[in-house]
């Protein structure tokens, strides 16, 4: 059984369907990335899994227990939802102590998690003096308090500097390797690609992709851009390549050929055989971001238009 299983999970807010018939099965262990544009339903899904909001329809299980009874798994789950949440006037340690007592945990555990996130020595300072990055670390510490089997982190690297992002990424990967399951939502695709073993892509509350990171990366495509020495040779080169069976098309002042890097030499030879000298030959590999945008929409504006159409 997966660590998180959902079946036709749905939640509406007025006329907006935040999560729409979502059926998921997330494997136990490792780091799972939850990605999608703004309004794709990531936070709503996380809140439903944590028992903060109730689904309108469908069902879900977390660690084998129904989300209708979140008390059955709450002690085995740690979470950071949206943004760090603490009493600003209290110290980092006091804030964590309050959460530890709520869960019936000893104060020693507070010191352990402060050490894990690198806040030892700063624990007596009031949280209001913390930078956003430090608050983010403290929130991760709070999520780690119950030594959870499932760690759910909503945008855990928000506000962190590059070094902090690398550090937290390493921490998440270490936690994932230790047998826990870490579910991370993020907009930073590079972060997801680097840290996650499994990726879930949402759009308008619907599942677009769920699978191993390699499976998503396999969807990336490559193409080769060619530019002849003389622009007047473009039509002749295009005709020659197409006649030779290449998937070629003109793009402004160059010709784009759908082909992988290992076909570059053959292309160069084909151009030469047709009497055209190339001034420019570049292999372009799609990034995960290109795949993501192709799946979810090219831009926020495009998404807004699409969403308006969907609602209408």
């Amino acid at each position: 059984m997966g660590v998180v299983e959902t079946s036709e999970l749905t939640r509406r807010f007025g006329s907006i369907t935040a999560v729409d018939g979502l059926t998921l099965d997330l494997p136990a262990g490792g780091v799972i990335g939850l990605v999608g544009p703004n309004g794709s339903g990531k936070s709503t899904l996380i809140r439903m899994l944590l028992g903060l909001i109730r689904p309108g329809a469908g069902s879900a299980h977390v660690l084998g227990a129904s989300i209708a009874q979140p008390a059955r798994y709450a002690a085995r789950v740690g979470a950071l939802v949206e943004r760090p949440a603490f009493v600003p006037g209290l110290s980092a340690r006091t804030n964590l102590r309050a959460l530890a007592r709520l869960r019936g945990l000893p104060d020693d555990r507070v010191d352990e998690v402060l050490g894990i996130v690198g806040l030892t020595g700063r624990e007596r300072e009031p949280v209001k003096r913390f930078s956003l990055g430090m608050q983010q670390r403290l929130a991760i510490a709070a999520a780690l308090l119950p030594d959870p089997e499932l760690l759910v982190l909503d945008e855990p690297t928000n506000g962190l500097d590059p070094a902090g992002i690398v550090e937290i990424r390493a921490l998440l990967m270490a936690l994932g390797r230790s047998g826990r399951t870490v579910v991370v939502s993020s907009h930073l695709l590079a972060e997801i690609e680097a840290a996650c073993d499994w990726i879930v892509v949402l759009r308008f509350g619907e599942l677009v992709f769920s699978g191993p990171t390699e499976a998503l990366l396999a969807r990336t495509r490559a193409h080769i851009d060619l530019r002849p020495e003389h622009a007047t040779d473009l039509p002749a080169l295009l005709a020659a390549l197409q006649a030779a069976g290449w998937a070629a098309a003109r793009e402004a002042d160059l010709i784009r050929v759908v082909a992988t890097a290992d076909r570059a030499a053959a292309l160069n030879r084909a151009a030469s055989d047709s009497g055209v000298t190339l001034a420019h030959l570049v292999v372009v590999q799609d990034s995960l971001e290109d795949v993501f945008l192709a799946m979810t929409g090219r831009s926020d504006g495009e998404l807004a238009v699409a969403r308006a159409g969907a609602v209408a």
Binding site: L50, G51, L52, P70, A71, A74, V77, A79, V81, E82, R83, P84, A85, F86, V87, P88, L99, L102, R103, A142, P146
Partner: peptide, 18 residues
Amino acid sequence: ATDYSTGLIRLLVAAMPR
């Protein structure tokens, strides 16, 4: 109200769903 304004209510309810 502080529980709501700070967002702490999310952590409290997640830890104690009843």
